[in-house]
């Protein structure tokens, strides 16, 4: 089993509903976020291109945050989901520095926090909150090892890219282009 997500940049309108839903589902304190929206504009008026995409932790196969964690708080669970055990975390911030995607933040209660792929929902067979809420249905989630999963299907049929592949982290979020 290998959980992954695909983000269809052709459909994303950058509305940030994913961010709001994540904050509500995971009690993310105001002023902090586990996910965010990126707007990239290229060219000059009127020859322009724009990409909008919803970003979060890439749940990398080769996760530098897990390797550098001195206490083992950052760890990988079944399905490849990268998690932080709050009780074990000493808030040293090494993981924040090591992450090429800037996906982690220091929670005001002293530990490091980030996207969990809503593991608590996924265990129950539900979609992560961001996927369930997205009005444009531009987020796909599922098991890459299962060829029938939504995410496997879109990755098979569409062109995609990953972010900062040169970092060698083997990210598991795929951006459909």
């Amino acid at each position: 089993m290998r959980y992954a997500m695909a983000v269809d940049t052709k459909k994303c309108v950058g509305c940030s509903d994913c961010v709001v839903a994540c904050q509500a589902e995971n009690n993310v304190p105001h002023g902090y976020a586990r996910e965010w929206v990126v707007e990239l504009v290229e060219g000059s008026y009127p020859n322009l291109e724009m990409e909008l995409r919803s970003e979060r932790c890439n749940h990398c196969d080769n996760a530098p945050c897990v390797r550098c964690c001195p206490t083992g708080a950052s760890h990988i669970v079944e399905g490849g989901i990268v998690l932080v055990e709050h009780n074990k975390c000493i808030g040293c911030g090494a993981c924040i520095t090591s992450c090429p995607y800037d996906a982690r933040y220091s929670h005001p209660e002293g530990y490091v926090d980030k996207c969990t792929f809503c593991e608590h929902l996924v265990k129950e067979g539900e979609d992560p909150a961001c996927v369930a809420v997205c009005p444009t249905k531009c987020l796909y989630f599922g098991d890459l090892d299962d060829p029938r999963s939504e995410v496997s299907k879109v990755i098979k049929n569409r062109k995609y890219k990953t972010l900062i592949p040169e970092a060698g982290t083997d990210p598991q979020i795929f951006f459909l282009t």
């Binding site: 309108v13 509305c15 909008l52 009005p135």
Partner: peptide, 26 residues
């Protein structure tokens, strides 16, 4: 917005008239 996304998924074309490069324009 949902239906615009569905239509794009199904290959519909969008024509946008706007002095601003809006999300829809992109």
């Amino acid at each position: 917005v949902q239906e615009m996304s569905d239509a794009i998924d199904k290959g519909a074309s969008v024509i946008t008239v706007d002095p601003r490069y809006s999300t829809a324009a992109s």
